[in-house]
């Protein structure tokens, strides 16, 4: 009876282990969107980086390979958001091949990419005409509105609206730039946190498990032994 209870407990414990370790891997990959680029950080546990690992970027839905790259000495690899993925059209699945049987994946959700505009045709003119915004439909008629607008003797209200739209767009880009700058260290911190190696809890816990597992084994052996002899 007691043995049955023991076996049941062990089975339950095994079941618990199975659920918690669904996505177990040893190398870490962390990626975040920074403006128009995706920054990836790859590392093994405990501060050692994956240098010269291969990163493959897939369309998460179709599995089409979009691009590949190699990480640098710091385990970093940044790439501009691929054309089809801009504006949150698809989620990206990043796969890190660190060699010798080490691999892991990271998915960038489509929402994370949503803030990146459709590919800017003229990236140099105004500071990024991209970020999907309401003023976008208005200035379609004016390719270089800054200079053209005040001179054209259009109706006052139209000019006013155009200028306001420009100001709005500019404020928006500036706010976005500031937020990005402020968030960069936070994102890096997150990247580091996600790559933290096993801590004291895991180590001590693991040793405890070993003691327990072999304790159970010793218990079983001690119970079966007298029967064998008898």
């Amino acid at each position: 009876m007691r043995r049955f209870a023991l076996a049941a407990c062990a089975a339950l414990a095994a079941l618990l282990l199975l659920t918690t370790a669904g996505h177990a891997h040893r190398v870490n990959l962390f990626a975040y969107v920074d403006g128009d680029t995706v920054v990836t950080e790859s590392g093994y546990s405990r501060s050692s980086r994956v240098n010269h690992g291969t990163i493959e970027v897939y369309d998460a839905a179709t599995g089409i390979l979009l691009l590949t790259g190699t990480t640098d000495d710091q385990g970093r690899f940044a790439f501009p958001i691929p054309e089809p993925a801009r504006g949150g059209a698809m989620a990206l699945r990043l796969k890190l091949l660190a060699g010798e049987g080490h691999q892991t994946e990271w998915t960038i959700a489509a929402e994370e990419l949503a803030a990146t505009g459709q590919k800017t045709a003229t990236p140099d003119s105004t500071p990024k005409s991209g970020p999907k915004s309401e003023p976008k439909p208005a200035p379609e008629s004016a390719p270089a509105p800054d200079l053209a607008a005040p001179q054209s003797p259009l109706s006052d209200t139209a000019a006013q609206a155009q200028i306001e739209a420009q100001i709005d767009a500019r404020i928006q880009t500036q706010v976005e730039a500031t937020i990005r700058r402020e968030l960069t260290p936070v994102k890096q911190m997150l990247a580091e946190l996600s790559q933290a190696g096993p801590g004291m809890t895991e180590i001590v816990g693991g040793i405890g498990y070993i003691v327990g597992i072999f304790g159970i084994l010793a218990f079983i052996k001690s119970r079966t032994r007298p029967k064998d002899r008898a």
């Binding site: 177990a24 891997h25 040893r26 190696g197 096993p198 693991g206």
Partner: peptide, 8 residues
């Protein structure tokens, strides 16, 4: 399970 080394 604890370190995510390897896998199940």
């Amino acid at each position: 399970v604890l370190f995510q080394y390897g896998g199940l």
